[in-house]
């Protein structure tokens, strides 16, 4: 099989001031995944590498640069899944971990369990020798600014995850540092499909809130017989319809990823409201990208092309 990498940096009303940095960030992440594949790594290694780059980039709401909870703390969620054995690992509401995707991978490889949350996940990190960093190291000035503005949570969802057909006051979209949940899907040369997603969640979320990202079948899913999928957007809506599962099952029936994503997002919007974005690679190596938010930063790489985009329909070579 010819390897394929697709990366996203979150689907929401990304303000112009962050547009360039977001696109650059996803390009770098896609390249990092590609380099791992070139060096002989498999798709799990590639997903881990790409998401690590995105987590370390302060422009995204994951790892360093994550948004703050109502109490002003940082709680991170991440998931990784491989599609041959359907092995998966996820962590939710972990604190002081620089790269939650690496912790999720440890859960997948070393724990008897699939999902660990809160203090238990941090204890497991300690057991695995993953260092804890001071929370301040993960907090950016933009995250604090956004938190102060958006402490009223209702305001956050309505502003950031509105369907792009709704009109938004420009000063709000310009102001927010928000919701760039990140994710990556990869097919390697053996046909192994893997998916990963990582996030800080929603600004001013309730402490202890788990969104869609770390839930298998909601924020990500991978099955080498069907597809690898990573989702972003309004987590509660994505959780209710299990968006990643929906897309995967459509691909299993032979639907092209682009159409599978479009139909699934449309269904979600109709059934429970809410908006979001999805990236996907099916078992034939076709990739798909779709979102019904204002924007989604994404990048994809194959042997023949490196392309990226931000606005609906955009497709730029990098």
């Amino acid at each position: 099989m010819d390897p394929v990498v697709v990366v996203h940096g979150g689907a929401w009303a990304i303000p112009d001031s962050m547009a360039e940095r977001s696109v650059l960030g996803v390009q770098q992440a896609a390249s990092a995944a590609w380099n791992v594949l070139e060096a002989g790594g498999n798709s799990i290694d590639a997903v881990t590498a790409a998401v690590t780059v995105l987590e370390d980039d302060p422009v995204f709401d994951a790892g360093t640069g994550a948004v703050l909870t109502m109490d002003g703390t940082v709680e991170l969620d991440a998931i990784i899944m491989e599609g041959n054995k359907l092995a998966a690992g996820s962590v939710a509401c972990v604190e002081r971990i620089k790269n939650p995707i690496q912790l999720a991978r440890k859960v997948m490889e070393q724990a008897d369990h699939v999902m660990l949350v809160g203090k238990g996940a941090n204890l497991f990190a300690e057991e695995c020798g993953i260092p804890q960093v001071p929370m301040e190291q993960l907090v950016t000035p933009e995250a604090i600014q956004s938190w102060e503005y958006f402490k009223k949570y209702r305001c956050t969802i309505q502003t950031l995850f509105s369907n792009r057909d709704e009109e938004l006051p420009p000063e709000i979209t310009e102001f927010v540092n928000g919701h760039e949940t990140v994710g990556c899907v990869v097919m390697d040369k053996t046909g192994l499909l893997s998916a990963g997603t990582s996030t800080g969640g929603i600004t001013a979320k309730r402490v202890g809130r788990v969104g869609d990202s770390p839930l298998i079948g909601c924020g990500a899913y991978a099955d080498s017989e069907a597809a690898a999928v990573s989702c972003t957007g309004h987590g509660e809506s994505i959780s209710k319809v299990c968006l990643a599962s929906l897309v995967t099952e459509k691909c299993r029936l032979g639907v092209h990823p682009n159409k599978a994503i479009r139909d699934s997002i449309k269904y979600m919007n109709k059934r429970v409201g809410g908006a979001g974005g999805v990236i996907c690679i099916d078992n034939k190596g076709n990739s798909g990208i779709g979102f019904n938010t204002e924007r989604m930063a994404w990048a994809s790489k194959t042997k023949s092309e490196s392309v990226c985009g931000l606005n609906p329909g955009e497709r730029l070579v990098f």
Partner: peptide, 15 residues
Amino acid sequence: STQHVFLVGEFAEKF
């Protein structure tokens, strides 16, 4: 009573 779907750990308890 919340905007969320899933609360975990001691925070679920506080809630």
